[in-house]
Design a protein around this nucleic acid. Structure first.
Lengths: 238, 238
DNA sequence: TGAGTTTGTTTATAAGAGAAACTATGTCAG
DNA sequence: CTGACATAGTTTCTCTTATAAACAAACTCA
């Protein structure tokens, strides 16, 4: 029955256990509105565009009013993260490999849609309802395997970390090819770098730079890496 | 011969291609001193302790003087990252699996010694001399395999991302067990969370939370995950 | 109706990033 | 040897941000 007392305020806000106080001046705002406004800002201007003053202005209030709802900016980020994750899609978890692949793909799509999610440093174990819902799907996929709990956690870490990392990387590369002016700057940067990475000091890397890897679409790389990890899991989980 | 002209200033600073100007007032500082001072601060106070005013004070100069050497704070962070990586240890790269494992372990040690390295968001492809030296070691390990260049890059991404992620995670857990007062707070937090993660909504996660995973040392998990990834690479690389 | 409570605002502080103008100190050409 | 020029470091200034403290406004309930 989750007694609402004894639950830290931070968790209560994460799980939406607010319950409007019936004493005192009635609230015009609530946590959800604040978080939604912040997310809209992040969707438009990226994480750097999210500041308490800006969120407040978007809502038509002063910065300080937000502190009645979020405690600190870091907490706002945590709330944004959980709300931004949203409810995971329905995934068939009867076969661990297909389940995990679908899970990874869904996360990838999500990160592509909300790049700023990656920018929020995850501090602490998963604790928001959506975060845990995602975790539940992955754990459900692994339920049939003979992995121990710590091993399952390890698998989640590898897989989740990979998706994050992969999206972040392909994002950076895409930015490089973004605008015309920046593209040429990036090209020049690459050429200058190539002159510094000489074959005598860095033989393999020099070969790599000579192979025009950084021009290929990163989609195949993602699939390759994912399969690699799934193979690794297969070796451990049977 | 790496013509120093045409190389962007940022790269020139990263690679130490300064060459003291022989015209005008002689410099009392240089990039290396600034970066060293910043790293000392980071080693002591973490990344949050690194601000331009503080670095400048540590050197006995004003904040603004630093801009003669680093361009922006982000660039300072990039310089710190490369310098903080340092030269990779000598690693036997004749067998890819042993080579990669040693590479991963070395990175792990490094991150343990300089946790703030993980906090610096890596923006853009590897471009500093040390960063590239590390990459060279990993690529050298993979030289004997039949992987394509994009596949090799994929392997590096998975492995490097995993080490980062793993260290970051174990670090967070260690912080949780840090001080006495915080430990109890953390415990209470965990108990409260456990009441929210009910078996009806999150059956697998509830079981996980009931298994006291978060008390185990994370070292085994690291080895497990690493082996898993190496197995995956083996499946792809022969 | 007034005490207690909650909300939003005002005001203030402290910090940081960075721009612009200025001063100090050197080289070199004549 | 002197002035033009270039480079270094400083001073001063402007924004922007997070957040604390005190306060005013709005509501409930005894």
């Amino acid at each position: 029955m989750t007694r609402q007392d004894e639950v830290p305020a931070e968790l209560r806000r994460l799980w939406g256990l607010a319950g409007p106080a019936r004493l005192g001046r009635p609230a015009e705002l609530d946590v959800a509105s604040v978080v939604t406004a912040a997310i809209e800002l992040a969707d438009r201007d990226g994480l750097a565009g999210v500041t308490l003053p800006k969120v407040a202005k978007a809502l038509g209030f002063t910065s300080m009013s937000l502190y009645r709802y979020v405690g600190s900016k870091d907490e706002l980020l945590a709330l944004m993260r959980d709300a931004g994750l949203g409810t995971p899609p329905l995934i068939d978890t009867s076969h661990w490999r297909d389940g995990l692949r679908a899970w990874a793909d869904a996360q990838r799509d999500l990160y592509a849609r909300r790049p700023w999610l990656i920018g929020i440093p995850l501090s602490g174990p998963p604790s928001g309802p959506h975060e845990i819902a995602w975790m539940e799907v992955a754990l459900a996929s692994l339920a049939g395997t003979r992995l121990s709990w710590p091993e399952k956690v390890g698998v989640l870490g590898v897989l989740g970390g990979y998706v994050r990392h992969s999206v972040q990387l392909s994002r950076e590369m895409a930015e490089g090819r973004g605008e015309q002016s920046q593209a040429s700057a990036e090209r020049e940067y690459g050429r200058a770098l190539a002159t510094l990475v000489t074959a005598d000091r860095f033989p393999e890397t020099a070969k790599l730079f000579g192979s025009a890897v950084f021009a290929t679409p990163a989609n195949d790389d993602y699939t390759f890496g994912l399969d690699m990890i799934l193979d690794g899991i297969a070796a451990a989980a049977g």
